Simulated scan of single mutants.
Amino acid sequence: MPRHRSRAPSSLRRRRVLATLAAGLVLGVGAAVTLAAWNDSETASGQFGASVFATESKGSGDAGFADHGTTPATLSFSGGAMSPGTLRYTWLDVRTTAATNVGGSAVLSAVATTADTGLASALRYKVVAIAATTSCDAAAIGSAALLTMTQVPSAPALSAALAAAGGSTVRFCFEVQLPAGSPSSLQGTSATFKWTVTSTSSS
């Protein structure tokens, strides 16, 4: 009987050792699962730049193209002083500058009276957009709408495409008239007008 009792503690210790080893194996498996995975990354960079869009113009009375954003271009009208029933023609050429790298469009956007001694309200005008190689005359004007000196064409607006780097030039051709039957009280009067062409890039 004593011999049987002496083997019991040894068997118990053996079971405890095996249990500890098993626990260690479980912990070992758990540790393998939590290892970080290998990783890598790629990056890319790009440089961006803004486009350039600027215009210049030449009036019929100017020697060459220039920036007339502040000081208006000079429009010289054909003929002399006006009498009732007379017509006068002039033009304004618009293009992009050599540094412009994107196209766009030019729109006749406004007209304003800058000086008047009584003639402004009596005058009327027509305007069309034509190629710069086309003469500005009655044939070019055709059947364009007759406007007061406070109006610009609308619905649709008068516009023309502009190519980059001065690749195309649009000519705004004006016909100004003093209608037949205008009163004699207008003799000796004058008026000065400023038209505005607004250009917008296509992108």
Score class of each variant (00 low, 15 high):
residue 123 L to A: 02
residue 36 A to Q: 10
residue 33 V to W: 09
residue 119 L to A: 02
residue 32 A to N: 13
residue 115 A to G: 07
residue 75 L to P: 00
residue 16 R to W: 10
residue 53 F to I: 03
residue 22 A to W: 11
residue 109 S to I: 03
residue 101 N to R: 06
residue 25 L to G: 13
residue 11 S to W: 11
residue 130 I to D: 03
residue 77 F to Q: 02
residue 72 P to E: 03
residue 67 D to L: 09
residue 38 W to F: 14
residue 128 V to G: 01
residue 76 S to H: 07
residue 17 V to D: 08
residue 10 S to N: 14
residue 74 T to P: 06
residue 54 A to M: 08
residue 53 F to Q: 00
residue 128 V to I: 06
residue 61 G to H: 07
residue 91 W to G: 00
residue 37 A to L: 12
residue 77 F to A: 03
residue 117 T to P: 01
residue 92 L to V: 05
residue 121 S to G: 11
residue 91 W to K: 01
residue 19 A to T: 12
residue 6 S to R: 13
residue 18 L to N: 12
residue 73 A to P: 00
residue 63 A to H: 05
residue 116 D to P: 01
residue 45 S to M: 09
residue 127 V to Y: 02
residue 21 L to F: 04
residue 72 P to Y: 00
residue 120 A to N: 05
residue 121 S to N: 12
residue 18 L to D: 12
residue 67 D to R: 08
residue 80 G to L: 09
residue 76 S to F: 04
residue 130 I to H: 01
residue 104 G to P: 01
residue 42 E to S: 15
residue 119 L to V: 03
residue 105 S to W: 03
residue 11 S to K: 12
residue 33 V to L: 12
residue 59 G to H: 02
residue 69 G to H: 06
residue 11 S to E: 15
residue 37 A to D: 13
residue 11 S to I: 11
residue 20 T to I: 14
residue 22 A to D: 12
residue 88 R to V: 08
residue 20 T to M: 08
residue 10 S to K: 15
residue 48 F to R: 10
residue 26 V to L: 15
residue 74 T to D: 14
residue 62 D to L: 07
residue 109 S to N: 06
residue 54 A to Q: 11
residue 124 R to V: 06
residue 7 R to E: 15
residue 109 S to C: 07
residue 100 T to G: 03
residue 111 V to C: 04
residue 22 A to S: 15
residue 26 V to Y: 08
residue 30 G to E: 14
residue 66 A to T: 09
